[in-house]
């Protein structure tokens, strides 16, 4: 184990870790947005919207995220979408995470007892009011933990943008493995930083989950 080398290169890893964090945060925001829209579409009254939601989930979850990134980044210019690697990374990963989150959010909504919605309607609330004032507040509590699992996966998935040369943690590790021939040391450096990021995110979600529970 070459600790001297690790001490020498760790500032570069720290810098890359910030980019991984930024990527994760932006991806999570976009993913949650897509997830909420996707779940709304899948639960919609309109058949077309339900179909679009189902197709989105099926296609995105049925193909590798790496290929989705490549289509967007390398194929995009062919259909007039010019994105730099970072933008393509955020959009590609966000839309990908959104498909998984769609199912999480939908699952949390449909587990709420049907009687809740019916009771709210009987008391004179409109369909929307019943959703926003009765069902969503209850399901929001249920979805925090499973969304946390999605976010954990998403943080690790940000490594994929290394393949389109975004200088985040995995790319940095790869570059230093190539130049120093010390794969284990570089893995450890990047690995520890990933674990810290995931640990902090996990604690944040656990805190949110505790706050949201009514005891």
């Amino acid at each position: 184990m070459d600790f001297e080398l690790m001490l020498k290169v760790y500032p570069f890893f720290l810098e890359a870790a910030w980019l991984t964090i930024l990527l994760s945060v932006l991806t999570a925001i976009l993913g949650l947005t897509c997830g909420a829209l996707g779940a709304a579409a899948r639960l919609s009254r309109f058949r077309t919207l339900r179909f679009i939601g189902a197709a989105y989930v099926s296609v995105i979850r049925g193909t590798p995220a790496l290929i989705q990134l490549f289509i967007l980044y390398f194929g995009g210019p062919q259909i007039g979408i010019q994105l730099d690697a970072f933008e393509a990374g955020v959009i590609g990963l966000g839309v990908n995470a959104g498909a998984y989150m769609t199912e999480t959010i939908r699952g949390a909504i449909i587990t709420i007892d049907k009687g809740q919605g019916e009771a709210a309607r009987t008391l004179g609330l409109s369909q929307w009011q019943a959703m926003y004032k009765v069902i969503l507040p209850q399901s929001a509590r249920l979805m925090i933990r499973p969304l946390g699992v999605n976010i954990n996966a998403l943080i690790k998935a940000t490594a994929l943008v290394a393949a389109i040369s975004v200088v985040e943690l995995t790319y940095t590790a790869q570059r230093y493995i190539g130049s120093t021939y010390k794969p284990f040391e570089m893995f450890l450096l990047a690995g520890i930083l990933y674990m810290i990021i995931i640990y902090v995110a996990g604690r944040g979600i656990a805190w949110l989950d505790r706050k949201a529970q009514i005891t």
Binding site: K156, T158, T170, I177, Y181, P183, A190, G191, M195
Partner: peptide, 21 residues
């Protein structure tokens, strides 16, 4: 713990280049 907390891509680099090492 290491394998669940880090990206697969990073692990592939470790295994591929690590074994050569």
């Amino acid at each position: 713990w290491l394998f669940m907390g880090t990206p697969l891509l990073l692990q592939l680099f470790l295994i591929y280049f690590g074994l050569v090492q």
